[in-house]
């Protein structure tokens, strides 16, 4: 493969149709009615900003989750896909999916391995989130994909504020 073709392939796998679609028309871009938790987070280096709201039942099920994301196609699409995949899942499943997304985005795990990690009930979700794994080839963009998930974790753990920069005052 020529380097020009490789370069195009990298870009095309980063900006797949799913990502562009969700980046332009994010799903669940709203706030949840009767939310039980919310959190905001940003990447102070680039200004991307995500707010997540969720309604979690007493059985720790995510009854509804939504995200308002302002930023690049990757962070907006990641937030959108996240809400689609997690609605109706348990809080524990969300934690496992967070780990899977991190592994996929940093290239620690390939999609099949990530599916094995999360177990059979969540493989369909990983299939959808695998669209984010194109950021592997773009280290500077990994944080764009993981920011919504950091915010989600803050939301469900009740820590309220998330940032991709440790030690920053978000």
């Amino acid at each position: 493969m020529t380097s020009a073709a490789a370069e195009s392939n990298d870009l095309l796998s980063l900006y797949q149709d799913v990502i562009l679609d969700h980046g332009k028309r994010p799903r669940n871009a709203r706030t949840v009615d009767a939310a039980t938790c919310s959190a905001s987070g940003n990447n102070p280096l680039c200004g991307d900003r995500v707010t997540v709201t969720a309604r979690i039942s007493s059985e720790n099920q995510i009854e509804d989750v939504a995200a308002l994301a302002k930023g690049c196609a990757i962070s907006v699409a990641s937030a959108s896909l996240m809400t689609e995949v997690l609605k109706g899942q348990s809080v524990d499943a969300a934690r496992r999916m967070f780990k899977a997304v991190q592994d996929l985005c940093t290239g620690q795990r390939q999609p099949d391995e990530a599916k094995a990690d999360v177990g059979p009930a969540l493989t369909a979700g990983v299939d959808r989130l695998a669209a984010l794994s194109g950021v592997q080839q773009f280290p500077a963009r990994v944080k764009c994909a993981t920011l919504p998930w950091h915010v989600l974790i803050s939301c469900i753990e009740g820590t309220d504020r998330a940032t991709t920069e440790t030690g920053s005052n978000a």
Binding site: G71, I74, C144
Partner: peptide, 14 residues
């Protein structure tokens, strides 16, 4: 229009 500056910078970089 329709392209965030960060996405643009990533594509231009290539």
């Amino acid at each position: 229009d329709g392209a965030h500056p960060h996405d643009l910078a990533t594509v231009l970089d290539r």
